[in-house]
Design a protein around this nucleic acid. Structure first.
Length: 503
RNA sequence: GUCCCCGUGGUGCAGAGGCCCAGCACGCGACCCUUUCAAGGUUGAGACCGCGGGUUCGAAUCCCGCCGGGGACGCCA
């Protein structure tokens, strides 16, 4: 295998904010392709927008990538033969290449002020013309340009786009795309401060980093002809291009803040599992085939083919994401679930510094709640009955209060069956106890269990009782200072009765 | 405004001329399970394949036009 047969793909976010799920999906497609083909996945940071780029955003993008499981084998943090991988550290490279184009007459200095350009844009737009750069500085003689530079006049370097030429390329997902250069203005290569503009920096980097497949968002298709012309100017072989469609919100506009969570970190904070988000994202615009959708990343990579990626934009469907997440929640390791839920429990003030025994307890109880929930941030609500039992709160509800009074015999029997007895540490013990209450009161079914639920959990709904009650009893046996105390079933029965009698 | 891209049930996909009066999944409805809410299981409704013309014995699949949506047009990426 020769070197140029090795597939090299890259994901190159600009660190100007949180990693958007749409970009994460682009990153995922890159990763899947590289993984499936034994290629190299490169991570580069495009931080040439000094005004908006931050170190923190770059860092959090890396974290999000790792969290999703999209590890890269070359690039920022990891290193490699083609660095540096921060564009801000490659300024001298872009400058040299811009100078080269200028010396060959393919690029030129432009002295137009931003105000001038804005006015120009306004007028061409009004005249119904494409608002491209008009080329005012195209033919300034070189020595005049040099003189003006020496006089300290600010200037950018622009690339000379050849007139009336069709630029054609075959997009791997879209097929043949054709642009005529008449609609393209001369793009800025280097800004007046010497920092490269996007269209120049990507080309230089992708070429120098030997990228073979450029997979990026659809919003870049119209940039592609400019970039192709740059490859041509340098005599470089362009990579293959694949433009993946956009991710839309429910109203079919570009997915944005007003649609809810849009960044990877937000999804993490709401308690989505990384494998769920990644799996869902892979399904948006692509299908693994054979009717199976819930598959591990490695398997997705095995099946992934760029040609099969859909061309139309996709609506981000939170419901389906929830379905995927539920699947992975049920499959997740208890210890991991407990660890992931800890922050949510801490936020409620229930488990501030859990010790070893507490952790084991949480591991036994968190999966119970996680099995019936969409997201981990919903777990505390399903576990409230353990750590935040309150008979009086339950009885604030007039309907519940009335019911409690009506079923007083069951409550009494329950309390006496619990009093002084060993804790109900498993479902058999609970069922035996419930059977005795049934015998005593003659109540069965809902009339029997609902009062028991009310008294013991303080809630009208929740986990199955033969799971919930042993969880209560085991919690009550915990001697812990790092976690809020869990009252036992016997205590609860007494407290509830007292509250029914109370005001 | 100009250029580019897209268009299969509410949503995501399958379909690459006859196997499709269109299949799968999410969601939705019903039912089952059950001591409750969920979860889970079963089952049902839901698409004139954006519209109109062609080509063809035959089109969701090919061609043309229209409409609708999106993207781009920056010293942002």
């Amino acid at each position: 295998m020769t070197l140029d047969l090795v597939m090299r793909v890259r994901f190159a976010p600009s660190p100007t904010g949180q990693l958007h799920v749409g970009n994460a999906r682009t990153a995922l497609f890159n990763w899947l392709l590289a993984r499936g083909a034994g290629g190299t996945f490169i991570l580069r940071i495009e931080d040439t927008d000094f005004a908006r780029s931050t170190k923190e955003a770059a860092q959090s993008a890396l974290e999000d990538m790792r969290w999703l499981g999209l590890n890269w084998n070359e690039g920022v943090d990891t290193g490699g033969e083609y660095g540096p991988y921060f564009q801000s550290e490659r300024l001298h490279i872009y400058r040299a290449h811009a100078v080269e184009l200028m010396s060959r007459g393919l690029a030129y200095r432009c002295f137009c002020s931003e105000e001038q350009l804005e006015m120009e844009r306004y007028h061409t737009l009004r005249a119904g013309q494409p608002p491209k750069y008009g080329g005012r500085c195209r033919d300034i003689p070189k020595d005049e340009a040099r003189r003006r530079i020496e006089n300290g006049e600010p200037a950018v370097i622009r690339f000379r786009i050849p007139p009336d030429r069709d630029v054609v390329f075959t997009d791997v997902v879209r097929g043949e795309v054709r642009f005529n250069t008449e609609v393209i203005g001369d793009p800025v290569l280097l800004r007046s401060d010497g920092v490269p503009a996007y269209n120049f920096a990507v080309v230089v980097d992708d070429a120098l980093m030997a990228i073979t497949h450029v997979i990026r968002g659809e919003d870049h298709v119209s940039n592609t002809p400019r970039q192709l012309l740059l490859y041509e100017a340098f005599g470089w072989t362009p990579p293959l291009f694949a433009h993946v469609s956009m991710v839309l919100g429910p109203d079919h506009s570009k997915l944005s803040k007003r649609h809810g969570a849009t960044s990877v970190s937000e999804f993490r904070e709401r308690g989505y599992l990384p494998e769920a988000l990644a799996n869902y994202l892979a399904l948006l615009g692509w299908s693994p085939g054979e009717g199976e959708e819930l598959l591990p990343l490695e398997e997705l990579a095995r099946r992934f083919r760029l040609e099969d990626v859909g061309r139309s934009a996709g609506v981000f469907d939170v419901e389906k994401l929830a379905w995927v997440n539920r699947h992975y929640l049920k499959a997740a390791d208890p210890a991991r679930l407990a660890g992931l839920c800890l922050p949510f429990l801490q936020r409620e003030g229930w488990a501030l510094q859990p010790g070893e025994a507490d952790r084991m307890y949480l591991e036994s109880v968190v999966p119970l709640a996680a099995a019936s929930v969409d997201r981990l941030d919903q777990v505390p609500a399903r576990l409230r009955f353990l750590f935040d039992y309150s008979a009086s709160r339950a009885l604030e509800d007039a309907v519940i209060r009335a019911e409690a009074i009506a079923v007083r015999p069951v409550l009494d029997a329950l309390a006496s069956e619990l009093e002084g007895r060993p804790p109900l540490i498993d479902r058999e013990a609970f069922r035996a106890m419930a059977a005795r209450v049934r015998e005593k009161t003659g109540q069965k079914g809902k009339a029997l269990f609902h009062p028991i639920r009310l008294a013991l959990t303080g809630e009208a709904e929740g986990l199955e009782l033969d799971l919930a009650v042993p969880a209560i009893e085991r919690g009550a046996m915990l001697a812990s200072s790092g976690m809020v105390r869990v009252p036992s079933a016997a205590e609860r029965a007494g407290l509830f009765l007292a509250a029914v009698d109370g005001p």
